[in-house]
Measured scan of single mutants.
Amino acid sequence: MASQGTKRSYEQMETDGERQNATEIRASVGKMIGGIGRFYIQMCTELKLSDYEGRLIQNSLTIERMVLSAFDERRNKYLEEHPSAGKDPKKTGGPIYRRVNGKWMRELILYDKEEIRRIWRQANNGDDATAGLTHMMIWHSNLNDATYQRTRALVRTGMDPRMCSLMQGSTLPRRSGAAGAAVKGVGTMVMELVRMIKRGINDRNFWRGENGRKTRIAYERMCNILKGKFQTAAQKAMMDQVRESRNPGNAEFEDLTFLARSALILRGSVAHKSCLPACVYGPAVASGYDFEREGYSLVGIDPFRLLQNSQVYSLIRPNENPAHKSQLVWMACHSAAFEDLRVLSFIKGTKVLPRGKLSTRGVQIASNENMETMESSTLELRSRYWAIRTRSGGNTNQQRASAGQISIQPTFSVQRNLPFDRTTIMAAFNGNTEGRTSDMRTEIIRMMESARPEDVSFQGRGVFELSDEKAASPIVPSFDMSNEGSYFFGDNAEEYDN
Rank of each mutant, 00 (worst) to 15 (best):
M1Q: 13
A2L: 00
S3Q: 00
S3P: 09
Q4Y: 05
G5L: 02
K7L: 00
S9W: 00
Y10S: 09
M13H: 00
E14W: 02
N21G: 14
I25P: 00
R26G: 07
R26V: 06
A27W: 10
G30M: 10
I33D: 05
I36H: 05
I36A: 03
G37E: 12
Y40M: 14
I41N: 09
I41G: 10
Q42G: 07
K48M: 13
S50C: 14
S50E: 10
G54R: 08
L56Q: 01
I57W: 08
Q58E: 09
R65S: 09
S69Y: 14
A70W: 04
F71W: 05
R74C: 05
Y78M: 07
E81N: 01
S84I: 08
D88M: 06
D88C: 14
V100C: 03
N101Y: 14
G102S: 15
G102D: 09
G102T: 02
R106W: 07
L110R: 12
I116R: 01
W120N: 07
W120M: 08
Q122T: 08
N125T: 12
N125K: 07
T130Y: 03
G132S: 14
H135K: 04
M137D: 05
L143T: 15
A146Q: 14
T147I: 14
Y148N: 12
Y148S: 03
R150W: 11
T151I: 09
L154F: 09
L154D: 02
T157Q: 13
G158R: 05
G158H: 12
M159Q: 08
D160Y: 08
R162V: 06
R162E: 03
M163V: 14
C164Q: 15
M167L: 10
G169D: 09
S170T: 12
T171R: 02
L172G: 08
G177S: 11
G180S: 10
G180L: 02
V183N: 02
K184Y: 08
K184I: 07
K184T: 05
G187K: 03
M189C: 12
V190L: 05
V194T: 15
V194W: 01
R195F: 08
I197K: 02
R199Q: 15
G200F: 07
I201L: 15
I201S: 05
N202G: 05
T215N: 04
R216V: 02
A218D: 11
A218T: 14
Y219G: 02
E220L: 11
E220H: 10
R221Y: 09
M222N: 06
N224F: 02
I225T: 14
I225L: 09
A234P: 13
K236W: 03
K236D: 05
M239P: 00
D240A: 06
D240F: 08
S245H: 01
P248E: 01
G249M: 06
E252R: 01
E252M: 05
E252P: 13
E252L: 03
F253Q: 11
L256N: 02
R261P: 12
A263F: 04
A263M: 06
S269H: 14
H272S: 07
S274P: 06
S274M: 06
V280Q: 01
Y281M: 07
P283T: 13
S287I: 12
D290E: 13
F291Q: 07
G295N: 09
D302Q: 14
F304H: 13
L306G: 04
Q308G: 01
Q311L: 01
Y313H: 12
I316Y: 04
I316W: 01
R317K: 10
R317G: 08
N319G: 13
N321D: 08
S326K: 02
L328E: 02
M331R: 10
H334Y: 13
S335Y: 09
E339N: 03
S345R: 09
S345L: 04
G349W: 10
K351S: 06
V352N: 04
P354N: 07
L358Y: 05
G362H: 05
M371G: 04
T373N: 13
R384D: 05
R384I: 13
R384C: 11
R389K: 15
T390H: 03
T390W: 04
S392R: 07
N397W: 00
R400F: 00
A401I: 15
S407T: 11
Q409D: 02
P410G: 05
T411E: 02
F412P: 00
V414T: 09
L418F: 07
P419D: 02
F420T: 02
R422E: 02
R422C: 06
F429V: 03
N432H: 12
D439M: 08
D439N: 12
E443H: 06
P453C: 08
S457M: 06
S457V: 03
F458Q: 01
Q459G: 09
R461K: 15
V463H: 06
L466R: 06
L466F: 15
S467R: 08
A471F: 03
I475G: 01
D480Q: 12
E484Y: 06
Y487M: 09
F489S: 10
G490W: 07
D497W: 07
D497N: 13
